[in-house]
Structures are given as C-alpha cells and as structure tokens.
C-alpha cells in the first residue's frame, strides 16, 4: 500500500513538473510576443537610439527568440535565472530577497486563516440559523465580493489614518537597521499587521462560507443523526464526528486557496509598498523585464502546483475511502 502510494506521489510530482515546464515555456514565448520593449528606458531625446541597440546586443536580445529560448533553457538547468534587464542584477538575487517577504505574509495569513476558520465554523454550526450566523455569513459574502485592495484601503483608513496604530506602508521603519533583533522583530510585526490582516480577512471570507456549508451538510447526514440519538454531547459530536468529515472538502479548498492567496498577496504588496514577488512581478511586467517575469511566474506556478499537490496528499491521508488513483 505504502509503495503504491509512493509511486502515485512520484507520478503526481512528474505531472506537476511537466505542468511547470509547459507554463514556463508558454510564458517565455508569450512574453516575447508581447509588444513593448525593456529598453524603452534608453529612449531619450539626448541619446542616440544606437545605445539601446548596443544594450540589446549585450543581453543577447538581438538574436531570434528561438535562440534566446535555447540559451535560457540551458541556463535554467544550471540554476541560472538570468540577469534582470532593468535592475541589472541576477534574477536569483532579486527573487530570493522578494520571496521571503511574500512567503512571510502569505504563509502567516494562510495559517491564521486555518486557525480562525475552524473555530469560527464550529461556532456558526452551533448557532446555525440564528442572527449571528446569518450576520457573519452575509458579512463574509460582502468581503468575499470586494476586491482585496478595497479591504486593504479600509484597513489603512481604520488602522492607520483614523487610529494611527499601524504604518500604512513599507516593510519596516526607516531606522530598522539601527535596531536590535527584538526591536526589529516587533517593527516587522508592526508593519506586517495590516497586510496580513488584509489577506487573512479576505481568505477567511471565502473559506468560512465553504466550511460552514460543509459542516451543515454533514450535520444533516444520517450517521450524525444516529450518533446524536446515542446521546453523545453536541460538543463532542461537532468536534469529533462532523468536523473531521467537513475538513476533507475544506482541505481541497485550501489547496486551491494557495493560488488565490498569491494573487491577493500581489495586490496587497502593491497597496502596502512591500518588496515581495508580487510587486517585483507587476513592476517587471510594466518594464517588460522578461527574465524576471519568467522567474516570478515559475515560482508562483510552482507554489500553486505544490499547494494542490499537498492538498491532494492530505485528502488521501484524511479520507481512507478516497483512492489515490482518483487524484492522479
């Protein structure tokens, strides 16, 4: 059984790898098909446009796209993402400094979302049909319908402009590099509170409605009625029997949520001026910095595929009835 599972996971990993390859290859060609020029910064009335041509040659962008692709592929297998046309730095250096920020806020929001959604779901199940349940459900719907930047702006208004409790942008204070480790930690937490809250609130608004629905459905199933008739206290029934069953579909949603969380992180980074992958990617798209865009897409694609893979494995682990073959 274990060997079979390992084989299936390996197969799944192979499929995921192929998906990333397809994604990156298509992005490479799509980027080069896009109109626009990363060397527009060299267009100046005071400057002969031959300088732009010279720089293009320097970066090998004067060659046909197919040749550029072969060079790029060769480099990528040796772990070289290339050189940023705009930042004039190795892409790996840019990615490594940005990914820490993105992962910090998105993972914190992800964990917070799980920690908060489950008790909140149980609370709503307990008060199913009551005013508080309907209120939270409708509120979640409103937040879910609103784009994440609206939530961010509301939080900035409340947390920064009105109450002046939190800074409205940046990752840390200007004098961060003069602080000791503990002060730095608090400074980071202070700056990341609003962005993390933005992501957590928007994520919960989706997952709570899903979990609530799932909990209600399970609680109406026959096995729950049977268990209830045996006199099991409601608390235990909810936590030990209804919740584990509802969690299976919730985990599936969590896997998908990783992708959505990344897109929300991208917007959140822009609003809060955080130097993460999202901001790097958006800036690079505007300047047509191909190597950076491709690397960012590769990283985010990898994260989404990995998230889904983990979710699939977890579902299979939690649900013994669920066949591995189903997910392959």
């Amino acid at each position: 059984m274990i060997q079979e599972q390992t084989m299936v996971i390996l197969k799944r990993l192979l499929v995921s790898f192929l998906m990333i390859v397809i994604l990156v290859v298509s992005i490479f060609f799509m980027m080069h098909l896009l109109p626009g020029d990363p060397f527009q910064q060299y267009y100046s009335p005071e400057l002969d446009n031959r300088i732009a041509e010279q720089v293009k040659t320097k970066f090998g962008l004067d060659k046909p796209v197919s040749i550029q692709f072969i060079y790029w592929l060769k480099n990528i297998f040796s772990g070289d993402f290339g050189f940023s046309l705009v930042y004039k730095k190795p892409v790996s250096e840019l990615i490594s400094s940005s990914i820490t920020v993105t992962l910090s806020i998105s993972l914190t929001a992800f964990i917070l979302q799980i920690i908060l959604t489950i008790p909140l779901g149980l609370f709503l199940l307990k008060h199913n049909g009551k005013k508080i349940d309907l209120l939270i459900d409708k509120l979640a719907l409103v937040i879910y319908s609103a784009p994440s930047f609206v939530v961010a702006i509301i939080l900035i208004y409340a947390g920064s402009i009105l109450t002046r409790l939190f800074p409205s942008s940046q990752l840390y204070s200007y004098n961060f590099y003069e602080m000791n480790s503990i002060e730095r930690l608090f400074d980071l937490l202070h700056h990341l509170t609003l962005p993390v809250l933005t992501l957590t609130i928007t994520s919960i608004s989706f997952s709570i409605r899903y979990l609530r629905q799932s909990l209600i459905e399970i609680s109406n199933q026959e096995f729950v009625t049977t268990l209830r008739s045996t006199g099991i206290p409601e608390n235990i029934l909810r936590r030990k029997h209804i919740l584990p069953n509802a969690l299976i579909s919730y985990i599936t949603i969590l896997g998908l949520e990783i992708g959505s969380l990344l897109s929300k992180t991208l917007i959140t980074e822009m609003v809060f001026s955080l130097p993460g992958i999202g901001r790097l990617m958006v800036g690079s798209i505007f300047t047509r910095d191909y190597p950076v865009i491709i690397a960012c897409v590769m990283i985010s694609g990898f994260m989404v595929i990995l998230g889904n893979l983990i979710a699939d494995i977890l579902i299979a682990r939690f649900n013994p009835k669920f066949s591995f073959e189903v997910i392959t």
Binding site: I153, I156, S160, I161, R164, P167, S168, S169, Q170, Y174, M270, V271, F272, S273, R279, G283
Partner: peptide, 20 residues
C-alpha cells in the same frame, strides 16, 4: 533624507496627510 518608495499614488497622499 529618507526617500520612501511608495508606488501607489493614494498611499502617498494618505501618508502625507498622516504625517508619515
């Protein structure tokens, strides 16, 4: 001189009003 990189126009104006 502390040059803060704030790409969003609304964030810049809010921070000016806010004294940041």
């Amino acid at each position: 001189l502390i040059f803060k990189v704030i790409p969003d126009y609304n964030s810049r104006i809010n921070q000016l009003k806010n004294g940041e």
